[in-house]
Write a protein that binds this DNA or RNA. Sequence first.
DNA 1: GTCTATATTTGGATAGAC
DNA 2: GTCTATCCAAATATAGAC
Lengths: 187, 187
Amino acid sequence: MDRRAARHARTRREIVEAAWELSGRDGLTGWTLRDVASALGMQAPSLYGYFSSKHDLYDAMFSEGCRDLLAVLPEIDSSREAQDQLRAGMRAFVDYCSERPALFQLLFQHSVPGFTPSPESYAVAVDLLDRMRTALAAAGVTSARAVDLWTAVITGLISQQISNDLGGSRWTDLTDEAVALLLTASV
Amino acid sequence: MDRRAARHARTRREIVEAAWELSGRDGLTGWTLRDVASALGMQAPSLYGYFSSKHDLYDAMFSEGCRDLLAVLPEIDSSREAQDQLRAGMRAFVDYCSERPALFQLLFQHSVPGFTPSPESYAVAVDLLDRMRTALAAAGVTSARAVDLWTAVITGLISQQISNDLGGSRWTDLTDEAVALLLTASV
DNA sequence: GTCTATATTTGGATAGAC
DNA sequence: GTCTATCCAAATATAGAC
């Protein structure tokens, strides 16, 4: 990758980062391309050198967001107790998503009208789900129905936290209890 | 109420109904006032004789939606087993919300940017929550934490159903299992 | 690669006639 | 009470100069 390509890639990342920052403050759909550009000291049309449309920018946010989330989740360590690791992973997931409502909404609630992730971005989301499934399987949760119930409960906690107690911990504090309950049912 | 007022009220209801229908087809924010008007054979400015703004129309949709949902939930019948009634109520709730994603999003996910229900509409929502709480209390679920966990699990099922299997029953089919699990934990 | 200027569309809301 | 005509603002996207 030559200097020009490296610079281009860096600017792209800065644009995505600025879009996430605006999403955190004004909501996932609460900003315009002008806003993003001006946050970087640019003009809106300049963004089209990096993204072909606003949806294309959302697509980059989607894949980047998946990667961020993957990075936050603890690695599976085969030397430690699987249930403890699962609990820790779920807490990390719930806490991170609750602090970044826009991320949760883009990745898990499809809340940008008309936006669907590209195959490439979707592949990163699949990686994320695989990580979840692996952690669950290590703790003995393998049936499809059980996995679905887990995802519903965990995303339910996050969703309630975001919708009804933004910035607080009324629902995130219930994570350990929910995990314990689900573990008694699954094994 | 004289004839004029009755006619006015009826037209208001028709507008709200048309808006819900459009929301079901094109999403909660996927229609314009022109769309609503044309669905009724009217012109957009005529709507302002009934609603002072689009948010005002959303507000009417909010309170009307709460009432619809209340009407769908079974009454508490003190002669029957509380847990059975709770299970039936939760199934009714999950099924109805899953069939009407826009209703769920407006009432429980605050997903119209900038919209907050008026005090009058919010009061109807409180009635709805009270009904839930009463049904839970009758089945022995009284602590605030337990109620929060119930709402998270139930709305989590609906949310996953809507986001990942619209029109199907992959998560709604888990309702009875979730209720049973929550009951073992609460009592 | 970034700018200015602008095309184009859209959609909420108002004015005023009938 | 409903209409036509219109305003106004916003926002994506493009054209073309530098």
